[in-house]
């Protein structure tokens, strides 16, 4: 029993960076913009959070800066894809490469620097004593609690507010939204920016809470897994939480399975194989339930001149 409990408890921090990134990407894609630069934004978030925390000793300042840096990176993509109407796939890829390269350049001096100020786990009094789920959910660090909260906020805003309706309609059919008086590019800019902020936070979680350390290329494909989770969640924040923890669990399980004599290299493939399987599942569900991706996803919106 305690074996499973330990796995579940470790799963949540392992899935948190994915959850943060996926929440943001859901908003971005809901607005009709595909941002493949999640990996790049995450790693820039990671390096900036680590750098600021190492310099100032203040973890929260590091987290804040990572959000700003992630958002700033996303604005490059927004400019490319909304203003220049350039190819979104290529823009996203270039953002990923930019992030990986620039973070390596900036982060060189932080390699191997230990972080003495870090976020400690903060059991929530009362809640943590709930049998079973208490110690799993409520004996974590503050950023994990924030991620719970953000999931709710993202869900609430998407489905219950005017902004949410506008966001979804822009992604479904920008011309209809436009004729209804919605400022399409403003909504899209905002959505992409939010996506960047969240990816930045995801990266910060990795470098100042989870590791905590800076390693070149430390996101190691997580940004791409975030994109898969976004599809798996059918662009719904509340389902992203499920997808993220599934992947978190897989990562934790890797080390649990080693004693059974399976080659660790083969176990390392698990998250990536699992991503493909999850995409296939999602694809089945999408066609069965006749859900579709936001229909203008990836297509630039050209406003007709009247």
């Amino acid at each position: 029993m305690s074996f499973i409990l330990e796995i579940l408890k470790a799963t949540i921090p392992a899935g948190t960076p994915l959850l943060l990134g996926a929440l943001g990407e859901i908003y971005t894609e809901r607005s009709g913009i595909l941002n493949l630069g999640v990996e790049g934004m995450m790693i820039m978030g990671a390096v900036s959070a680590f750098g600021i925390t190492a310099i100032t000793g203040n973890v929260w300042l590091g987290v804040l800066v990572s959000a700003i840096v992630g958002g700033g990176m996303a604005l490059i993509h927004a400019f490319n894809s909304i203003t220049l109407k350039a190819n979104q796939t290529l823009s996203g890829l270039s953002l990923t490469m930019l992030g990986l390269g620039l973070s390596g350049l900036i982060g060189k001096r932080y390699v191997g620097v230990p972080l003495l100020n870090k976020l400690h786990s903060l059991p929530i009094y009362g809640l943590k004593d709930i049998p079973l789920i208490g110690p799993i959910l409520f004996d974590q660090d503050p950023l994990v609690y924030i991620s719970y909260l953000l999931t709710f906020v993202f869900w609430f805003f998407l489905f219950n507010t005017r902004f949410g309706i506008e966001l979804r309609s822009v992604g479904e059919s920008p011309d209809v939204a436009d004729s209804a008086g919605i400022d399409v590019s403003k909504i899209q800019y905002l959505a992409v920016f939010i996506g960047g902020i969240m990816a930045g936070l995801g990266g910060a979680y990795l470098s100042v809470v989870y590791a905590p350390a800076w390693i070149e290329g430390m996101t190691a494909g997580m940004g791409w897994i975030v994109l898969a989770i976004t599809i798996f969640s059918l662009w719904r924040p509340e389902r992203a939480i499920l997808g993220s923890y599934l992947f978190g669990g897989i990562r934790v399980l890797q080390y649990k399975l080693q004693p059974f004599g399976i080659s660790p290299n083969l176990l390392n493939m698990l998250p990536f194989i699992f991503t493909i399987l999850v995409l296939m599942l999602a694809s089945k569900e999408i066609s069965r339930k006749r859900i579709s991706a936001p229909s203008s996803l990836g297509i630039p919106y050209f406003r007709e001149k009247l």
């Binding site: 305690s2 074996f3 330990e6 796995i7 470790a10 392992a14 191997g112 990795l206 989870y210 590791a211 905590p212 350390a213 390693i215 430390m218 990562r251 934790v252 890797q254 080390y255 649990k256 080693q258 004693p259 660790p264 290299n265 390392n268």
Partner: peptide, 25 residues
């Protein structure tokens, strides 16, 4: 003595998962 392999010389998050996995065992 039980062992977990990282297949990496330097990766703190893997090292952490491996260490926690050993502790939970």
């Amino acid at each position: 003595v039980d062992v977990r392999w990282l297949f990496s010389w330097y990766d703190p998050s893997k090292a952490r998962m491996a260490a926690e996995s050993l502790i939970s065992d």
